[in-house]
Amino acid sequence: MIRIVCVIGIVVILCSVSGCAKKQEQSQNTLRSDVAVNVQPVEKLDEAGLKKLITERKGKLLFVNVWATWCAPCVEEFPDLVKLAQHYNGENVEVIAISADFPDEIDSKILPFLKKQQVPFKTYVGQFENQDSFINSLNIKWNGALPATFIYDAEGKQRFFTIGKSNFDRFKNEIEKVRGKT
C-alpha cells in the first residue's frame, strides 16, 4: 500500500513539474509573440518629418541608423541596434532607424525583417523627392553609403556620424560621450 502511495506521489510530482514546464514554455511563447506583435508600424518620413524628429528632442538624445534590407552590413549590424535600444530602454535615449528601401516595400520587405529581428524601436522609411537633399540634411559629408549612423544631443545638434557597419560597444561608447557633453 505504501508503495502504491509512493508511486502515485511520484507520478503527481512529475506531472506537476512537467505542467509547470509547459506553462513556462507557453508563457515564453506568449512573450515572444507579444514582442513580435509589438513591432511598431513603419511610417513614411519626408524631409520636414526628419527635421522635426531631430529638432523636437524633449530632452532626449537621438540615435539614427539609416539602413536597407538589401544592404548586407546593415542587416548584420541590426541585432546590435536592437540590443542598444534594449540597453537604453527607459532612459533619455531615443533609437530610431530609417530605411532606404522604397516606401511600397513596407509590407513585403521592411516589416517582415523587423518582425524577424523583433525590433522594439520606431522605424521609418524615407519618402522624399530628392535623395541628395535628404542625404545632405543628415550630413553634408555623407555621400549615401549604407549603413550610416548619426547621434544628436538633446538640443538636436549632431555629435557623431559614421558610415559602414559598427557594433553595440562602439555605439554605446559614442552615446556615453555625447551624454557627457550634454
Binding site: 552590413p73 542625404i135 549615401g144 553609403a145 549604407l146
Partner: peptide, 10 residues
Amino acid sequence: STKAFGCTIK
C-alpha cells in the same frame, strides 16, 4: 556632384 544610397565598399 550628386548623391544616392548605395552599398559601402568593403
